[in-house]
């Protein structure tokens, strides 16, 4: 039943879900860009916890490139969501729309990594993608999304 990836994936979703609640609470107190700044501070403050055992020094330049690029891609996503909201995006449309981001991941995994799924898994992927967008739908959503792991 529970294969190796499912539990950590659910733990990630649970933690990011709690993050969503904190984001709601935080955005009641400060504006979106301020919240973004403090979220970044949290990311940086947590870093020393992982220094030990990271094996960072043994990585190749290629490894470093891919890792940093992953962060840059995520940051660019946040930048563009901010830019969309700044240009008067309707958050109740923009946020559920961006929740569809795994479609791009699935496409890259299919064409570049040659991942193949069982038919039932495709159904699960379709349901999960739709569900993610639907759960993020709030008719009167405020423009407070501050990026991945913090959008609601």
């Amino acid at each position: 039943m529970f294969s190796g990836w499912l539990i950590p994936a659910l733990v990630a979703a649970l933690l990011w879900g709690i993050v969503g609640i904190l984001q709601k609470l935080g955005s009641n107190r400060i504006n979106a860009s301020s919240l973004l700044a403090w979220v970044m501070a949290g990311y940086i403050l947590a870093l020393p916890l992982f220094w030990q055992g990271s094996g960072l020094s043994s990585l190749t330049q290629k490894d470093l490139f891919w890792g940093i690029l992953a962060g840059a891609a995520n940051g660019c996503g946040t930048w563009f969501l901010f830019a969309a909201l700044e240009r008067g995006a309707n958050a109740s449309v923009a946020v559920p729309l961006t929740a569809l981001y795994p479609t791009v991941t699935v496409a890259f995994a299919y064409f570049i990594l040659r991942e193949r799924l069982a038919f039932l898994d495709w159904i699960g992927v379709a349901l999960a993608l739709s569900a993610g967008a639907m759960l993020s739908y709030e008719p009167e959503a405020r423009s407070t999304a501050v990026g991945f792991g913090t959008e609601t």
Binding site: A13, T105, G132
Partner: peptide, 20 residues
């Protein structure tokens, strides 16, 4: 441990926990 095409959609369900 798993396929990106399964892990990405599942973890993107995090609003489930936010909503609950």
């Amino acid at each position: 441990r798993g396929k990106a095409s399964l892990v990405a959609p599942l973890t993107a369900l995090f609003p489930l926990f936010t909503v609950v």
